[in-house]
Design a protein around this nucleic acid. Structure first.
Lengths: 191, 191
DNA sequence: TGCATCGTAGCTGTATATAGGTCGTGCTCC
DNA sequence: GGAGCACGACCTATATACAGCTACGATGCA
């Protein structure tokens, strides 16, 4: 998808200057490619990069328990319980946008449990870098399968939070990430 | 240290626009703090963040052998040999700027051995985020001690490269990072 | 003398005109 | 007919003027 600065600036009701500030940050985060004289386009991602990012996310998830974790509070547990309710609501109802919002909120919750600021920022960055790719694959996967796997993760995460065990929490998350990677890899190879 | 956009733009012979692009990126990387109506200042770093970043760098270094490493070439070994020569030249000659350049080049060499693009970018980012802090501590440390430790690392790295063992390479690097962290921590606590 | 308030200097944020770069198209020349 | 070159449309990059924000100090009043 191509992006036109003037057009987008008009659409948002601002001038090109603040818009460019945002575009350049997105470019820096790897979501856009800006080429002088040509245009700006949303990057697509190759399979190697996709796997590299997932490997890194898995590594970070497995380590989140040992690198200055935050203390889990009741608020975290309540939020997670809400997410489980929303996930159960997704059963049988093919709502990709709903799944996306749920995944975003879950990512935010997890980041909130990471006490190390640089690790939190990187975890957040890597999530948004592959999220959009994952969503493009979602329509090709078995919906019930995806929802059940998500529910399994959420319940595992809540159990870990209940005993305040962020080590296990990270391990559960890593398992889920591995599952996602495997799911997408299989789709790619069969493409 | 405070930064004035207009002044700095004049100094570099460009207008404020491209300068601001750079400042905003540095701000995004956490090296600057930009406040509307007030000014832009170089951030200083608290000890917790410093330790968090080092913990993360150590983790990444230890994992660089297993997460899609690049193949070491003769060019890498030659460059490393040059770095060793430069380090030996530093013996007895208290040249902090020379040490800084050496460390930068070493960091670039290491990043060049990381095949995973996101991991390489993060490794690079984290290096530059703490490098300037390290240099402010350098004058307070025993120079010979620092140079010998660096030489020890460089030789260890070269030995690992010789047998094309990036796992060991990362372990050696991690050991050096731990030493740096310990050195600075001790200085902080005794301050 | 203490305090509140307002003005102002100086900074970053935004808008906009202009410059510079890239690629496609069509003409020209071989 | 084909290759090469010049031109123009369209894009991002930069320069610059102006608006908005913040901190601080001067000033007037209690």
């Amino acid at each position: 998808m191509m992006i036109n600065e003037t057009q987008l600036a008009t659409e948002f009701g601002v001038s090109r200057t603040p818009l460019r500030r945002v575009l350049q940050q997105l470019s820096y985060e790897g979501l856009l490619e800006i080429r002088n004289g040509v245009g700006t386009r949303v990057t697509d991602i190759d399979m190697k990069t996709f796997k590299d990012i997932y490997d890194l996310r898995i590594l970070l998830a497995e380590t989140m328990g040992s690198l200055s974790p935050n203390w889990a509070t009741d608020r975290h547990r309540e939020t997670l319980a809400e997410l489980i309710a929303r996930a159960e609501d997704l059963r049988g109802r093919r709502d990709i946008e709903g799944y996306a919002h749920l995944a975003n909120d879950l990512s935010a919750l997890i980041c909130d449990l990471i006490g190390s600021t640089p690790m939190r920022e990187i975890t957040d960055l890597l999530y948004y870098r592959v999220a959009r790719i994952w969503y493009t694959f979602l329509p090709n996967l078995d919906w019930d399968d995806v929802v059940e796997e998500l529910l399994g993760e959420l319940k595992g995460l809540l159990a870990a939070l209940a005993s305040n065990d962020l080590g296990t929490f990270g391990k559960v998350r890593a398992t889920y990430l591995r599952w996602m990677l495997k799911k997408v890899s299989r789709y790619i190879s069969s493409d």
